[in-house]
Design a protein around this nucleic acid. Structure first.
Lengths: 148, 148
DNA sequence: GTGGGGCCTCAAGTATACTTGAGGTCAAGG
DNA sequence: CCTTGACCTCAAGTATACTTGAGGCCCCAC
């Protein structure tokens, strides 16, 4: 069956060879080895790596990606059901993020009108005194959510 | 006029004191100094820092934030017009990002249906052969855009 | 069967974004 | 005045995510 060398995986995914080796070290992929010790990947590994790239792009840390991927069977080729479960969780994370950014954008819209981030009476910044009173600042803008 | 010490700026913005000093070093804020050498901030600086926090949250690097902020007058208190110009550019970056994520999500939706990232005949992954033919992989998913 | 491109490991380096610690100064309230 | 909490600098450390380099096998097309 398809045994793909690291260089080809790199070409197919667009990742650097060094990055793929790093991902293995981080436990995101578990390629096999030839008798001579060279890594042997399979298609499922390319898919794992694709997922890694997409998740990375969304700002998910490698540690978190590993956690997500741990729901997939390590060496058995994942079934459609495995991936569907993962995709669903992923989609919901995406939704959350999009929603957060959209709210931020809408709040910013109000700002542009009022010259906000510059004027004190904006809905975002209130007066400095009010902001000081409950220990805020850009938190209004950021919706009081943690960065990730 | 309002001369705010660094600790108060930290409280109001939610930033660590050390982070604010770092931002000064990186050229994102330019506080004044007392005769004794302590930093003196003004309201405009808090707004700059708020902007920094929001931009950071969107994944903008400090170097890029500095570039953005350079359109504001360094020491003169920015006018409403200054901030409006900045906000508009910012809003458009936000739009781009939201749009990218939304497209990603929609493509993922197709995937969930077909068990993609797992099956070869998905619209995202085509067959491995086709993907190999034009040197792609997750690029379909990522819309061929650079990370930032 | 061999030449050489591809692959290997391991250590160290890079970039970003800060934090922590040591050692010392400033300034406001009592 | 004097205490003391907030502030100062500078160097070093931390975490994340990789890349680069040295030194050396692997393996397949010719």
């Amino acid at each position: 069956m398809a045994s793909i060398p690291i260089g080809e995986v790199a070409q197919r995914t667009g990742l650097a060879v060094s990055a793929i080796r790093y991902y293995e070290e981080m436990g995101l992929v578990h390629p096999g080895r030839t008798a001579g010790g060279q890594r042997v990947f399979e298609r499922a590994d390319i898919r794992r790596l694709s997922f890694v790239m997409v998740a990375q792009r969304l700002g998910v840390s490698i540690a978190d990606i590993r956690t997500e991927l741990s729901s997939l069977p390590d060496r058995r080729t994942p079934t459609k059901t495995d991936w569907t479960r993962l995709s669903r969780r992923f989609r919901s994370a995406l939704d959350t993020r999009i929603q957060g950014l959209t709210e931020l954008r809408d709040r910013l819209d109000g700002c542009i009108g009022c010259g906000c981030l510059s004027l004190d009476l904006c809905q975002l910044h209130n007066s400095d005194d009010m902001a000081a009173a409950n220990g805020t600042g850009p938190r209004y803008v950021m919706g009081d959510e943690p960065p990730n």
